[in-house]
């Protein structure tokens, strides 16, 4: 199942299980990585290593996917899984794809599980993960 041609964000409730978001690519430049490292107060010297912290890639992937749909006010990021598969150099362009893995109703909450995959420029997997977003009814 592919994303609709219409590029305006879909609402949370419109997204069926299996819905695939169009892949988005983005570059993590040295200034962006430096800003990320300052924000998280990271002690490990990723700049000297020349590699992007995996969670910086993950954060940008989450943001890219989240821009593809809207959620009701009061929605929260409830849980998260990640698997780090490969370090990529600073300045790399990566491609993020995702799909709706599950939709569940729990009490007054609707849960949506997003599956995330990030590939490097050669198509090799960099990280994968699942995010659960809980939205009020």
């Amino acid at each position: 199942m592919k994303e609709k041609e219409n590029s305006s964000p879909l609402s949370f409730k419109e997204l069926p299980v299996g819905f695939e978001f169009s892949p988005t690519s983005y570059e993590l430049s040295e200034p962006t990585v430096a800003k990320y490292l300052e924000a998280v107060d990271e002690s490990a010297d990723f700049l000297a290593l020349g590699m992007i912290p995996p969670l910086a890639i993950a954060a940008c992937a989450m943001t890219a996917l989240a821009q593809s749909f809207t959620v009701p006010p009061g929605s929260i990021h409830a849980s998260q899984e990640f698997e780090f598969l490969k370090l990529v150099p600073i300045g790399s362009r990566v491609s993020c794809g995702g799909k709706i893995g599950q939709k569940l109703a729990r009490g007054n909450l609707n849960l949506i599980v997003l599956q995330i995959n990030v590939l490097d420029e050669s198509g090799e997997p960099v990280l994968s993960g699942k995010a659960t977003i809980a939205a009020p009814n």
């Binding site: 912290p53 995996p54 849980s79 998260q80 899984e81 990640f82 698997e83 780090f84 490969k86 370090l87």
Partner: peptide, 9 residues
């Protein structure tokens, strides 16, 4: 960083 998995709430 290249072989870790996490699952959190």
């Amino acid at each position: 960083l290249k072989g870790g998995k996490l699952s959190i709430r």
